[in-house]
């Protein structure tokens, strides 16, 4: 089922058995991910799943408790100064210095990067950051404008690897379009992009493969196309007797959502027939079965019948 790259040497990002604990709390555990050169790779999971922890290990902010992390063939902590020139990073919770202007912020980060910023003017123009905006203090910016500034600082030095944590948060639809264009251009130019998100449509649109994490563990790595194929079926039943919610026997496993006499279940493709056998013993008046969207396929991976656990709370993802 997993579509992880097999050859570590070909991987721009090579994570093996990565575990990060914060005292007794597990951030991520035994995570394996490989991302190849030129990929736009999605990293999906709900808040608290371990995405930000993994990303912070990739960019060298956190030291793994155990496991292997290689980015562009380098150890992100030990080889930080060799790796960082090739990195562009947008944090999930972007924090800026409120008293600096947008222009001062970009210049400060460019000075720290120690590299030319060939794309700054173009990116500001395309994302709609005007010269007047850049003269204003960041503390006066809206959330969307801060996010635009975050994207510019991540891309202005044209890095080989871009790591974006929840990049479209706060962007209006027009700017989101520009953002997707930038991702497509990065892929066309052979850049590698790791895109962390809990917004499925943006992953569906931008990424070739996705890793899905839940409660700090890897659920699967698949191509977006394969994920569509295994998506769940949405089964809707209407009962004739007007008695409302009732026990559904084995089908209770599929997280029934009741609305009066109607119930909706998301059932994996291979389980639909078996589930319906039991359900049709009840006084069913109407029945529909349809393919769920990608969002439901994603959610289905969180709703395995045996796993009722909630994702781990981790320090880095409290929002």
């Amino acid at each position: 089922m997993s579509e992880n790259l097999r050859d570590p040497a070909a991987a721009v990002i090579d994570v093996g058995a990565l575990t990060k604990r914060y005292g007794p709390t597990v951030g991520v555990e035994e995570l394996d991910i490989r991302v190849g050169a030129g990929e736009v790779f999605g990293f999906l999971g709900p808040n608290g799943a371990g995405k930000t922890t993994t990303i912070r290990c990739l960019v060298g902010l956190l030291r793994p408790t155990s496991g292997r992390v290689r980015v562009l063939g380098l150890d992100p902590v030990a080889d930080h100064r060799r790796l960082a020139p090739s990195l562009g990073y947008l944090p999930g919770e972007l924090r800026l210095y409120p008293e600096l202007t947008g222009g001062q912020t970009l210049q400060l980060l460019a000075d720290l990067q120690g590299a030319a910023t060939p794309r700054r003017a173009e990116l500001c123009a395309r994302l709609g950051l005007t010269a007047a905006d850049l003269r204003r203090a960041v503390g006066e910016y809206s959330r969307g404008m801060k996010q635009k500034l975050g994207l510019v600082q991540a891309l202005q030095h044209d890095p080989a690897l871009v790591v974006l944590d929840e990049p479209s948060e706060g962007l209006d639809p027009l700017v989101q379009e520009t953002f997707f264009e930038l991702l497509a251009e990065a892929r066309a130019a052979g850049r590698t992009v790791l895109l962390s998100s809990h917004v499925l449509p943006e992953v569906q649109r931008a990424c070739g493969r996705v890793a899905i994490v839940r409660a700090g563990r890897l659920v699967t790595v698949q191509s977006v196309a394969a994920l569509r194929e295994v998506r769940a079926r949405r089964v809707r039943l209407t009962f004739a007797d007007g008695a409302g919610p009732r026990p559904l026997g084995a089908a209770e496993s599929w997280s029934p959502r009741w609305q009066g006499n109607r119930v909706e279940l998301l059932i994996p493709p291979g389980e639909v027939v078996g589930a319906l056998r039991g359900l049709l013993a009840l006084p069913v008046e109407d029945l529909t079965v349809e393919e769920a969207g990608l969002e439901e396929a994603f959610l289905d991976l969180y709703r395995t019948p045996t796993d009722q656990s909630t994702p781990t709370d981790e320090p880095g993802e409290q929002r």
């Binding site: 020139p85 919770e93 924090r95």
Partner: peptide
């Protein structure tokens, strides 16, 4: 505490 360390320390500075 403020989170700005993330922007600073992903640069090539020790």
């Amino acid at each position: 505490e403020s989170g700005t360390i993330e922007l600073l320390m992903v640069r090539p500075i020790s």
